[in-house]
């Protein structure tokens, strides 16, 4: 127990996390690439045509993973923000900062692919139903978080302000997720959830899950890359950064 805790605290320091992250990044890229190739292969070459939507439904293999990641990354970001507020660990705030742009990108992709899916199937690029509107709010939350942190020069204060915004915004995540249950929306309900059997053909489901894994690995790899940059930037006046870059 004490040993495990010790290990955690060891890697919670930017100095020891920097090389560890560097070692992990290639592995996550490899996993992202493998899952990406397999997932897209299943999605575009193995999964059958859909009875209702023909080939147009294949957007699901990008749309759903992007939408899942947009919400999941926000939760992880808020988690790190909270840890940073409570324990005052430097690395937590950096993690939250590193995750935000990737979360914003996935939110944008969820909205974009959703528009390209909605136009042919529903008949509209965009509607103001509860699901789409709350996902758009999520995008603004990410953008607001990034802008707020960019506006504050002192990194400690920037972390604190960002953390509060991130935690306030957490309310939006269950709203997005349950919007299709709580209200009448144009967006259909969830095909995959913990409470019922998935309403998708097996190969379609597999394609979607493997693509989601690929996006997840991608998100970890990019966030680790970004956090390494943030560590260097913020610790530029320390001796270890000097030694690290002298190599």
């Amino acid at each position: 127990m004490s040993n495990g805790l010790l290990n955690w605290f060891k890697y919670a320091s930017p100095q020891s996390f920097y090389p560890l992250a560097g070692k992990m990044i290639p592995w996550f890229w490899a996993l992202a690439a493998i899952f990406g190739v397999v997932g897209l292969y299943i999605g575009f070459f193995v999964a059958p045509t859909d009875a209702q939507q023909g080939e147009g439904y294949r957007i699901i293999f990008l749309h759903v993973p992007a939408a899942w990641m947009s919400m999941f990354i926000y939760l992880v970001m808020a988690f790190w923000a909270a840890i940073g507020l409570i324990y005052k660990t430097r690395l937590s705030g950096m993690m939250a900062t590193a995750l935000a742009p990737t979360g914003a990108m996935f939110t944008f992709l969820a909205l974009w692919t959703g528009a390209f899916w909605g136009k042919p199937m529903w008949g509209a690029w965009w509607v103001w139903d509860a699901r789409l509107t709350s996902e758009l709010i999520l995008f603004f939350l990410y953008v607001g978080f990034i802008a707020l942190q960019a506006a504050i020069d002192d990194p400690r204060r920037a972390d604190k302000a960002g953390a509060i915004l991130a935690l306030v915004g957490v309310v939006n995540i269950p709203i997005i997720y349950f919007s299709v249950k709580w209200w009448n929306t144009l967006h259909q309900g969830a095909s995959v959830s913990l409470t019922k059997a998935p309403s998708m053909a097996q190969t379609m489901l597999w394609g979607m899950l493997v693509c989601a894994l690929a996006f997840w690995m991608y998100a970890i790899a990019v966030a680790l890359m970004r956090v390494r940059g943030i560590i260097l930037e913020r610790e530029r006046n320390t001796e270890w950064v000097r030694q690290e870059l002298a190599r």
Partner: peptide
Amino acid sequence: MGGYGLYVWGSVGATALLMLAEPIIV
């Protein structure tokens, strides 16, 4: 894509573009 080429490839294209650009920028 059974007539949905514009929509499917429009989605794939945007996703590929952003997911390639982001790591390069970082």
